[in-house]
Design a protein around this nucleic acid. Structure first.
Lengths: 268, 268
DNA sequence: TGTACATCAGTGAACGCGCGTTCACTGATGTAC
DNA sequence: TGTACATCAGTGAACGCGCGTTCACTGATGTAC
């Protein structure tokens, strides 16, 4: 158990990743349900039974691929967001960058996208380990909201990421996560009233989400962010799965427009 | 070819629908990819080869099930909307009824929902016949918008479906489908500016959609309706596919809130 | 009304395929003394 | 440093399964004269 790996350990690590790579290749090419241990083994020039030294079953291999896909998507979103921030983009610009990266990744890896956001494999139960990676995109967007909210709450002096046309409300204070009441606060909603107060159940769910990934953001904004989040993935799924044929296909313009509208919607 | 069916014709019609029913049962229970011609034949007590007298291939049987699923969902949405209208609901109430019916159907028939809105079966190409049934829900919502828009454009006298709190703009006229410019018109947007004019591609796509299912509704409203539409199905898919676990699950409150927000968003 | 023929439903065997997983085994690598 | 033993990777055959589809066939139903 030293830092120096034995030859065996190195070989094992290498083969493990070769198996994953080949499996990923098959999923990318033909979809998750066509993933076959025998085909992977064949391609790697080994007996199919040998794979069982590395993965206890097909489902376990699938789980690893799912985690990898979530991670790849999450990393792509994080990178794009950070790059936008580095280039001086405000919160809205970063939101755009994140959403655009998610779509770009999905278009580039449609079967891997389907693996994580499409129909779940029947009988397959996502294990605990997938939860973290699955939340990375949400964490990025939640972080953006939290950052923007904190900056605005701090007043004009701290409003480096305030939207050019957006009217900050300097009189308000930054709220905490439990301040998820009616959403009246420092948030410029582009004139859109956050009218409907959250029903109790949603209020608590929003508080949980806020505590996890968007501290300080009030409940109604979280609720809207959830709406924007489901819209984002709904739109991408529709595009990939052919549901936009006959309406917004090709979807570039619609996507771009939607992202803008949803950024308005959440108050960025 | 008379109206009177021969015994053969009656038997054929009956068996055809029995096959479909059994196939539907299997899909409902285990998902589309588990649908097996042999299992269907087994359950019906006949040789598997006999099915080929009724359906030329497994894919054709699947296509029929897909069409049936679209039709069942569409009919459910249409019924609920009509019932709401019959009960005196305004356009917004009908919109709610339609969305709620879609979700209810999806929750009651998760595998059939996945069959039509989940990951497409690899290699399967949806044939022309699916297009009509696939558009029924969209047609309902488009019709609601068109009706509401026409009523408001006609002024207060015709505003039988005007929203109680909604401010109609009596000075404006009902626009035609090609009046899809900046969205300034008789539409009360709850203070939300339809600021961003549509880019050319989206503008044309919106005009096509409007011409098909929502005549007279301006482009920006169509674009927002498309956003609401993708949000609706994105949210339902997330709920069914387990993506809301840890945030808005159970999703009843979130769903209801979202429908309200999106009704505001499209100006109902 | 009766007969000859065509149409069609349904059968059962077979083709050819691929899959996940298990198991007893060989031989190489690593480890403890 | 060398030896005895334990660990582990990989093999190849086999189990048991299910699938979609084809084909030659039998026998019943329908039709034309």
């Amino acid at each position: 158990m030293t830092a120096i790996q034995t030859a065996r350990q190195r070989a094992r690590a290498e083969l493990t990743s070769e198996i994953k790579a080949e499996a990923r290749r098959q999923v990318a090419e033909a979809g998750a349900q066509r993933l076959s241990l025998r085909a992977v083994a064949r391609e790697l020039g080994m007996a199919s039974s040998a794979l069982y030294r590395y993965f206890p079953s097909r489902d376990d291999l699938l789980t690893v691929l799912i985690i990898d896909a979530y991670d790849a998507l999450g990393e792509s979103a994080e990178r794009a967001t950070a790059a936008a921030a580095g280039a001086g983009a405000d919160a809205r610009g970063q939101w755009r960058a994140c959403c655009t990266a998610v779509r770009a990744w999905a278009l580039a890896h449609p079967h891997e996208y389907a693996l994580i956001y499409g129909t779940p494999v029947p009988g397959y139960q996502a294990p605990q380990e997938t939860i973290g990676p699955a939340g990375r995109v949400a964490a990025v967007l939640g972080g953006l909201l939290a950052g923007a909210f904190a900056a605005r709450g701090a007043g004009p002096a701290g409003s480096t990421i305030a939207r050019p046309g957006g009217a900050a409300h300097p009189q308000a204070q930054a709220s905490q996560a439990q301040d998820d009441g009616d959403g009246s606060g420092p948030w410029p909603h582009d004139g859109l009233p956050l009218a409907a107060p959250l029903p109790p159940v949603l209020r608590e769910q929003a508080a949980t989400v806020a505590a996890a990934i968007a501290p300080g953001v009030p409940g109604p904004v979280i609720a809207r962010a959830l709406i924007a989040f489901t819209q984002l993935f709904g739109m991408i799924s529709f595009e990939l799965f052919g549901q936009l044929v006959g309406s917004a296909d090709p979807a570039d313009a619609f996507f771009s427009y939607s992202v803008d509208q949803m950024a308005d919607f959440v108050g960025l």
